[in-house]
Amino acid sequence: MFTTLEVDVARASGPTIARWQLGRELHRLREAAKVSHKEVAAELGCSESKVYKIESGDVGVSRADVIVMLTRYGVDDDRLRETALDLQRQGKERGWWAKFGQLPAPYSMYIGLESAATAIRNFELAAVPGLLQTERYAQAIFDQQRMTEAAAERQKRLQVRLARQACLTEEPLLNLWTIIDESTLHRQVGGREVLREQLLHLVEMSERDNIDIQVLPFGEGAHPGMLGSVAILEFPKDVHTPVAYVESFGGDVYLEREEDMRRVTLAYTHLHSSALSSTKSRQLIADAARKLA
């Protein structure tokens, strides 16, 4: 391992999934009771948009509001009410990343999902995945991607990125399947020494049972991943359906609809079948590192 920043982070999911579960249940109960968003908003004394945000899990909700909603929906089952209130409590808790200060809402949401995921399948077109980046490699990327931000803000992002990596080494372990384009092995992010250090780190991490790294070679020509990087986050079946995440200059996009997930999964399957095996990929990465010595 090549990181030197001190990080002390528990492998915890944070409030994101709890909010999603509560929102989904409140949506189901409202529809079963045939109550409109407008009627709920009137009961709570808020806007309809807030009700939509509560049901989509975008925002937390107070215990008092949950009680009002459950009562309005005619929920008198003690166990159901207790479950909803427990999810409300979890949804109001601060995620482990809160100790780093205020983070952009989309980024906080992704960290929450990542922390709750049991497995992630991702493809990276131009860089090493964040969960596998060394400190100096990540710093070099932030210095270019976030050049308009203050140095202190970039340092905070670096600390968060390194802290996120605990999910690969702390129980319960996250299973990570990642495919990286071969160009990543040659793009000298931070210079030759930084890239070599990063490649050796990839070789080391690829030996772990919960991490699978494949390289998509130049010889494959055009491929679906040329559209950009993507991550597919998977959760226990009773928690949430898979979610695909796409980051771009236009903002963060989360895909959940069945047709969207089918399209993303098909593309990833194609990339997986076109990539080198884990063993051959490890050898290719090691060879690239040796050439930088």
Rank of each mutant, 00 (worst) to 15 (best):
T184C: 10
G191D: 06
H201W: 08
L158F: 04
E234C: 11
R192G: 01
Q159A: 15
A166Q: 08
V230W: 12
V203R: 10
Q155H: 12
L185K: 11
E207Y: 01
G228F: 13
A222R: 05
I141P: 00
Q144G: 07
R157T: 00
F235R: 13
T184G: 00
D143V: 01
F142N: 05
L185W: 12
E171W: 08
L216S: 12
G219A: 12
T148G: 02
D143L: 04
G225H: 14
T148W: 09
E171H: 11
M205W: 05
L202K: 04
L200G: 08
S206A: 15
I180P: 02
L168D: 10
L216W: 11
Q214S: 11
R161S: 06
Y137D: 02
Q133L: 03
A163T: 10
I141W: 00
Q155Y: 08
H186R: 15
R187F: 04
H223C: 10
E149M: 11
R164E: 06
A222D: 07
R146P: 00
L173G: 09
A163Q: 05
N210Q: 15
R136F: 00
M205Y: 08
H201V: 01
A140I: 02
T178I: 03
T184H: 00
L162F: 09
I213E: 10
F142L: 14
